[in-house]
Write a protein that binds this DNA or RNA. Structure first.
Length: 209
DNA sequence: ATCCCGAGGG
DNA sequence: CCCTCTGGAT
């Protein structure tokens, strides 16, 4: 049986991660909320850097949901080919744009349930849109947040992304959700990437004072 | 559990 | 070569 951290221990680990990246912010580039949704949809299993390379031309050619909804699917694929999973993503982008256009009047929904009805939008994507676009507290659980939570034993090894989210949200006050989420992403990306799995996770944290 | 998938790093 | 990258649908 794996032994998990107590609430106090887990909060201290999160606090130390936050201390390393106190001003962390999202690294995806976007202007409108519709474009934010597009960028997050594209970012699955891909680095933000790769997404940011494709979005300037994409945003220019598809300025709003109506234009993307009418676009040729092959043309959308050509815009995003370099980010991987491009056929699935192109289909989801077009279908989502269609629904945003004629069901939501071009507006991006502000609640998780509705966002998750859109093709290609799961809990992680919905949470990013809520937090980044609307400043609504949410913790999006991606590969980094999952890995960090498991290595420090904040959650069990088999925890689902939803379970990780619940655990982190119960540990932290809402006001800290977005900041801590961003700090965990950068800590996972730059300080404790996946390949460091044989090292002591605490060796990546600042010393206790 | 499997599929989608190109780019970058080691 | 192999692993990983802000996942989601089937």
């Amino acid at each position: 049986m794996e032994k998990l951290l107590s609430d106090e221990e887990a909060r201290l680990v999160l606090k130390r991660i936050l201390s390393l990246y106190p001003d962390a912010k999202g690294e995806l580039h976007w202007d409108t909320k519709f474009h934010l949704l597009c960028a997050v949809l594209m970012s699955a299993q891909t680095t933000d850097k790769m997404v940011n390379k494709t979005t300037p031309k994409f945003f220019n050619d598809y300025p709003d949901s109506a234009s993307l909804a009418q676009a040729n699917i092959r043309d959308i694929e050509a815009h995003i080919r370099t980010i991987g999973l491009y056929r699935t993503k192109a289909k989801h982008l077009k279908e989502t744009a269609q629904i945003i256009t004629d069901k939501f009047n071009g507006e991006i929904p502000q609640d998780k349930k509705t966002l998750m009805t859109l093709p290609g939008v799961g809990e992680k994507t919905a949470n990013v849109v809520l937090a980044e676009g609307f400043k609504i507290p949410a913790i999006a659980v991606d590969t980094h947040v999952s890995r960090i939570s498991k290595r420090f034993k904040i959650v069990g090894e088999k925890a689902t992304p939803h379970e990780v989210e619940q655990r982190l949200e119960e540990l932290l006050p809402k006001e800290e959700w977005i900041r801590t989420h961003h700090a965990m992403i950068l800590f996972g990306r730059y300080t404790m990437p996946a390949r460091t799995k044989d090292q002591d996770p605490y060796s990546f944290l600042p010393p206790l004072k």
